[in-house]
Amino acid sequence: MNVKILADSACDLSEQYYNEFAIEMIPLTVHLDEKDFQDGKTISAKTVYDAMREGKSPKTSQASAQAFKTIFTSYAETNQPLIYFAFSSELSGTYQAAKMMEQEIKENYPDAPIYAVDTKCASIGYGLVVLRAAQLAKNGASVEEILETATYHANHMEHIFTVDDLEYLYRGGRVSKTAAFVGSLLKIKPILHVDDGKLIPLEKMRGSKKLLARMVDIMDERGVDINNQVIGISHGDDLERAEQLAEMIKEKFQPKDIVIEMVGSVIGAHSGPGTLALFFLNDQYK
């Protein structure tokens, strides 16, 4: 019996990957126009970005503990191995909800092969970890092999990203009001990264012309064995710049593949339209 992989919608993978690798997905919630929507199921990222451009402020909330209880119970009853790889616990309470339910289920099914793993990753950085796990699962790998390889990928996943407008990160409590105001005034484009699951400012750039080149340079400085990797790029409804970045990376590194996806509704509600993110490993691909 192959190991089943469960992810949440903050991995920003599109439906083709869920279908190809039989990945199960649990959606986080987006609150917009006084209604609740399931990220990736009943609302599209494009809808969220258009609403933000109109001045609306969508809110988000974690996946419910009850949803995890239902899924975990169904796998425990059939004794099928299930690994849930979670969105960073530093950015959402979803992992904690899952861990709580994993422990509860194991009180009734002590031998249930159910595992919840905090990837400390987000968006396609998290998505690439899920994809690697799902590839291994499809090929019949054991729980131990999948946990070891996917955790290695999660621990070595670099997240380098920029936002078009710091105001959105300010609204979500990610940067101070002063930083957002000064950034907008001076047209400063921040480069941020994720360190141990948290958003950390890395550099500031004036204007956007040199931004993509600098992201590629950072990849060169931090990446290892890039031509053997699958690279991830996600964008806040700005496919043109994402493809431009992909071309620059292909030209310089010739990676194995590049996955380009839109930043989903949940992360996009905090980062805003025009976000551009780059994901790669800072160690050998496994």
Rank of each mutant, 00 (worst) to 15 (best):
I233G: 06
E243A: 04
I260M: 05
P255C: 03
N227Y: 12
F253I: 03
E251I: 00
I233R: 09
E221F: 11
Q254G: 05
E247W: 01
E261L: 00
K250F: 06
I260A: 06
D220S: 14
E251K: 14
V216C: 12
M262A: 02
D237L: 11
L239T: 06
D257A: 14
V216F: 11
D237N: 15
D220T: 13
E221K: 15
A242G: 08
E243L: 12
S234G: 07
R241C: 00
I249G: 02
D220R: 08
G236E: 14
K252I: 00
I249L: 05
M262L: 01
K252L: 00
N227V: 05
L245Q: 04
A246T: 07
G236N: 12
Q244M: 08
L245E: 03
E243K: 14
N227I: 02
D217C: 01
G236Q: 11
V259F: 09
D238N: 15
K252A: 05
I226P: 06
D220N: 14
G223P: 04
R241V: 01
R222E: 13
I258V: 13
I226G: 05
Q229P: 06
M248I: 00
V259Y: 13
V263N: 01
I233L: 09
I249S: 03
E247K: 15
E243M: 12
A246G: 08
Q229C: 08
E221V: 09
M219V: 08
S234M: 08
G223M: 04
I231D: 09
D257V: 05
V230H: 10
D237V: 02
V230F: 06
N228C: 06
